[in-house]
């Protein structure tokens, strides 16, 4: 962190100022002048928190994608299909078990197993042929999408929110003053707060595993120089299996989460594939921190864009991607290889 601050003092200052300004906007009661520019405070803060939650979901999907890409140079274009498959499976499991929480580990295992199978049976046979691997993932996404349409049909599903998470929570943020002069506190769905917390916990967990354990060391070494790692006697196939299984499982869990606070339908797979692509391109390919930053930016831009310019929120996302590509092709946090 201090390294970054020392290397880019101007950018750090700008980011800090922006963060402080945002915090000030959230914490202070708004004057009529601000309300004239930005609309009601409740709307703004809600969009902000909605963006945070959406960013958390994007992070869950994109972190597996970027990990697989960073280590294996495999652009897994079937990642969105794994997301949707996880959601559908989670719907079935949570209905059968009658408990939402059961769905998460079961889906993680099932989709992770599918990922292991794919890596072991398919991608291992064409190692080093990146283009061919990518084509295979495209074919897989077409086949999976049609099989899911076959099994689950075209209607949309929503997972039942567990009882202990349904309903709104009151946050200690004043969004306005009611007629009697008493402050009105912001209310936000508990389930979204839970998603945010889950994403942060998973992100921290991944960071700890990557930076503090032997497996993490192997993964980081593999991202930097795969050939050298293989040459030093590591059975890299096992590392590949672990990473692919974990990334796929994470996509499945994200499907459960996404199916709870949004809905599952054909077409969601490409939506989340696109989101992962944009997040990873913006953040920097192969970097978990980059995925977190990219997911945060894209989630916020999408939600705030939806509130203030509904027609063009997709364009904002795309503009950010084009800008990053034009000025920093390796992503905001990413090494030029």
């Amino acid at each position: 962190m201090t390294d970054v601050a020392r290397r880019y003092p101007v950018w750090t200052l700008i980011v800090l100022l922006l963060a402080a300004g945002l915090l000030w906007l959230i914490l202070t009661p708004w004057t009529p002048g601000i309300e004239q520019v930005l609309g009601r405070k409740r709307v703004f803060v809600n969009a902000l928190f909605g963006g945070l939650t959406l960013g958390a979901l994007y992070f869950l999907v994109a972190s597996g994608f970027t990990l697989i890409f960073g280590l294996m140079r495999n652009v897994n274009l079937a990642h969105g299909s794994l997301y949707l498959l996880g959601g559908y499976l989670g719907y079935g499991v949570s209905n059968a078990a009658g408990e939402w929480l059961v769905a998460v580990p079961v889906v993680f295992l099932l989709v992770g197993l599918l990922g292991l199978l794919l890596q072991h049976q398919v991608f291992r046979r064409m190692e080093g042929e990146e283009l061919r691997q990518t084509m295979v993932t495209i074919g897989l996404s077409v086949v999976l999408a049609d099989m899911m349409l076959w099994i689950w049909g075209g209607q949309s599903y929503t997972l039942q929110t567990p009882d202990w998470l349904s309903g709104p929570a009151t946050l200690p943020i004043v969004v306005g003053v009611d007629r009697n002069g008493a402050p009105v506190y912001m209310r936000f769905p508990q389930v979204r707060i839970a998603i945010l917390v889950t994403a942060v916990v998973i992100g921290l967990g991944m960071w700890l595993v990557l930076n503090r354990t032997r497996l993490g060391m192997l993964v980081r070494a593999g991202v930097d120089d795969r050939e050298m790692l293989t040459a030093s006697g590591i059975r890299i196939q096992y590392v590949f299996l672990a990473v692919f299984g974990f990334g796929a499982g994470l996509a499945g869990v994200a499907g459960v989460v996404g199916g709870t606070f949004q809905s599952l339908a054909p077409g969601e797979d490409t939506r989340f594939l696109l989101a992962s692509l944009v997040v990873v391109i913006v953040g920097g390919m192969g970097s978990i921190t980059g995925a977190a930053l990219g997911a945060l930016i894209i989630g916020l831009v999408e939600q705030i864009g939806l509130v203030y310019a509904p027609t063009y929120s997709v364009v904002f996302t795309f503009l950010i991607m084009a800008l990053v590509l034009a000025f920093r092709p390796q992503g905001l946090i990413g090494n030029r290889r």
Binding site: V75, L77, T134, T270, L274, L277, V278, V280, I281, M285, V314, V315, T317, F318, M321, L325
Partner: peptide, 12 residues
């Protein structure tokens, strides 16, 4: 990378 970027632009 070309596949990823062109796919992203096409979706946009």
């Amino acid at each position: 990378y070309t596949i990823m970027i062109t796919l992203a632009i096409a979706s946009a």
